[in-house]
Design a protein around this nucleic acid. Structure first.
Lengths: 140, 140
DNA sequence: GTAAGTACGTACAAAAAGGTTAGTGTGATG
DNA sequence: CATCACACTAACCTTTTTGTACGTACTTAC
């Protein structure tokens, strides 16, 4: 899928940019969806749900550091975008279950792969950052 | 005021959750790296650079809507994390080129796959959202 | 000589994200 | 009988992120 040289013509690059999708358009609604799934909490929720159906507080316990407010908001976004399914059991202590939809599962797998890649390469990244800091302070 | 006791109590559940990485730990540095690559501008820059080496203003023209400041910041982050390589030609009108590193290319491919998935499924998502809005206003 | 382009840095303002606290209503647990 | 757990919501406040405007040092084009 290469063959596209770095073109300097603006209309050509714009056309190719828009061909591949709307994400490159300035005020495009799919950017919002994208932010939902790539936000830190969105990512972690998706990965947790990849392991199966969870209740609200189960997710909260697994995703360390998320507040109830943020978790609720994240789940609402993911539900509205069709990534997770929310099932409410009308019992007296509330019981709500969250499950990935088919689209959510596919998305979560991509997200998980990306997360795993970054986690695996993090030691290397950290080493690089230390080296850069060292050379910076040496040049000063 | 909780969470500090987590280091001993939740360590068991943390261990299982964290087996595949540190992203689930509350204040883990790899979350920062993750945010760099999954931020909207980070994503779009990575995808643009997947097509090859670009100059600063070439990227700026392709990523519609990004300000110079944000683009500079994004590129600095991606460079510090080892995803992009910055090459400066010390000529009088400044000339700087940005290229993906090997790690950056692998990351960008993942990111691109995720972006393409979301773009492809966006029509479906938008339809769902319209349907949900319709049913909401009907129930009122 | 005036304007535009290049690759940023900086100061300030606006906006968004996120945290904290409190509250809901019942039911089980101590 | 008091507290906790559940699954949130609302109000309020702080922190972080992002945008805007401007400056730089120089060159090329008009």
């Amino acid at each position: 899928m290469d063959g596209m040289s770095a073109s300097s013509d603006q209309s050509a690059s714009l056309a190719s940019a828009l061909q591949r999708g709307a994400l490159f358009a300035a005020n495009c609604p799919s950017r919002t969806v994208f932010k939902h799934v790539t936000s830190l909490w969105g990512v972690l929720v998706l990965i947790v749900l990849l392991a199966g159906t969870h209740r609200f507080s189960e997710i909260r316990r697994k995703v360390n550091g998320v507040s109830e407010k943020m978790l609720a908001q994240t789940l609402q976004n993911l539900e509205a975008d069709g990534f997770v399914l929310r099932k409410v059991y009308p019992v007296v202590p509330p019981h709500v279950e969250y499950t990935l939809t088919a689209l959510g599962e596919e998305t979560a797998r991509h997200v998980n792969a990306l997360a795993e890649l970054i986690e695996r390469s993090y030691p290397q990244i950290a080493a690089l950052q230390n080296a850069q800091q060292a050379s910076e302070s040496a040049s000063r």
